[in-house]
Design a binder for these strands. Structure first.
Lengths: 200, 200, 200, 200
DNA sequence: AATGAATGAGAATTCATTCAT
DNA sequence: AATGAATGAATTCTCATTCAT
């Protein structure tokens, strides 16, 4: 009659932390089990396979972002500037948080490489990310511009997140987010002009 | 049979292709050997270990970029706009080329995670990348602005490169590069203003 | 299939037998596993490495000797002649026993060569051996003589044990032990004289 | 038209040194080649296999002992005490010499274990050793005693040689040899008596 | 639910050996 | 005679997974 020592959530979080730190292929089920205070055999009570556990990790991160980050975009009671700020500031804190992790941030490629199925999950995450950011920009800009701004912002965030990790310096991401937020305050005309210029 | 079947270069390139496609940890020495038409034991003639092979791969990519991409930045016979174009257009073709690969592009994080030594190599790559881009911007902008523009451009490139791979759509990267190139044509004053605005 | 097939002790003993028969470097983990009716991977449940298994084998032999051989030397309820007899007769039966083995007997050198740590373990074994034998001689002889007799006896035993194995003839060891035991019955004076003679 | 870089002798000696230091199984052909300043493939010009090389090493050591050590026993122009001294003093210097080595000394067991053929070679070595020593003793003692003394002396030498290596202290062997040499000076009667005592 | 034993496939690596040059 | 490339078998070790208790 063994007592339950952990729950699914705990295992998913411990797995996330290890995948983030060491990558999926370089993390063994034993390590995950050990991080949970379990024997490796016990993990199979919760997840039928390592791949399935990874799936759950990705989904959990995705859900977390939906609830805690992307949701800000859709809160119509808040003005667009402020919504953008809420979204990116919360994204920043998640990305830079060891625990909550950003498996889907700059590790998107590695994750996507694992299997077509994972690629799909990663795509969905970024689609949601784009959609949220674009939704905000649509309050101030027409479709084409909003799309471009959203893709650009998320790309900058992902790129600078990578630098933050590679150089172990949070400022890359922080400065990028500051810059993105400052951009939305600028007069519409300037942006329009530039975008137009690119379209020929 | 004792006739030379491959050379170091070939092995490094085959390894690069596989690492790019499958990630380092998910690629076995057998696979690399098979890709070269060798027995796995034979690889150890050329490289004392898998890690060492990886080191060589990274260095080769770095050298390739120095010679074929970053070098454009320092060709003072060419006007800055054109230098920026040469640099990013060549970067684009390398990044999107299966063969030459961009291990150090969006896979920087996984690579960097492998070991402190690899992290250092990845850092050096990006430092060189930053430096090249910044050198061009310095022809038109003062130090602070050039730095910011360089970091931003490289971040955008890296982020959109990730999207290109995740969504299997080269346009993410292509559009980003177009945008970056169009930016340098804009009057200095606009940029200055925005940067100043961010500095308080 | 998850039913315990062997225990640590069994593995250690099987390893000992093989090391004795084939030497450490010429015995593979597969062979040891096969001798235990296990798959090779299963050994790593019990021992983290081959070297560690060797360590355990050495320690087990050492413990066995402490308990079953050297202990006779310290049983003060028994007269010295008899103690010496008990010690060497039990040593003989262990040395010549395939199962209990004498890895630390005449294979001391190969074992000691393996690594400094193993050398230390072998040294400890012989120190204990010397100490036990010397303790007995001290009941009849002064320090200097007891030391010399102990070193000599153990050396003779080891040398003749080697011959017993090389010539596959137990009599080398048996006769040596008989001779050693007969020696202690001799008048002290004769021994003293000889030892004195050597001391100039 | 490659020049001869080494000769058989050199290789045999380098191999001997390595086998002595690391044991046969733990020494690779590459290491031997490297010690000779050759590529491993080149060794096969001189010896058809590693085993054959080992055979040659054993034979060379045996020949060396025949010529430089055992020969002293048969030089009838020298009195027995002096012959014994010559024999053991030369043996001592060989045994303790890193270069000339004593593969057949205390490593007899490991060597003998390798294959029946090697066991035979080791047996022959010790038979010659016994015979030489016994020949000297026969000048002073009758057959039975000479045999016993020879076996005992060689056993002591081998045992103490092992201690010298395990404890890295040449004195074990040196003192043993001193003791053996002092023994032959003693009156015949004492030895006779003891030997007789053992024979019932 | 948890464990710990066991598995078997496969990882990286080593190595004796072969042979064209 | 020497080399260096190549091999293939073997070695140590790892790991996802299974399952009886």
């Amino acid at each position: 009659m063994p007592k339950q020592k952990v729950d699914e959530q705990t295992i998913i979080i411990e797995a996330l932390k290890l995948f983030r730190k060491q990558s999926y292929f370089n993390t063994s089920m034993s390590e995950i089990a050990a991080a949970c205070g379990l024997q490796k055999g016990s993990l199979y009570h919760y997840f039928p396979s390592k791949e399935d556990l990874m799936r759950r990790v990705i989904k959990m991160v995705h859900e977390f972002f939906k609830t805690n980050v992307f949701a800000h975009a859709y809160d119509k009671s808040v003005p667009p500037q402020k919504r953008l700020e809420n979204l990116f500031i919360s994204a920043e804190s998640v990305f830079l948080d060891e625990t909550k992790g950003n498996l889907l941030g700059n590790m998107g490629v590695e994750t996507a490489l694992m299997a077509p199925e994972f690629n799909t999950l990663v795509q969905r995450f970024f689609q949601d990310f784009f959609h949220a950011v674009k939704t905000i920009y649509l309050d101030k800009y027409p479709e084409a511009i909003a799309t471009e701004l959203a893709e650009r912002s998320v790309a900058e965030v992902e790129g600078s997140l990578m630098f933050s990790r590679v150089f172990n310096d949070h400022n890359y991401l922080r400065n990028t987010i500051k810059r993105i937020l400052s951009r939305i305050d600028k007069p519409v005309s300037a942006v329009k002009e530039r975008v137009k210029a690119q379209l020929e």
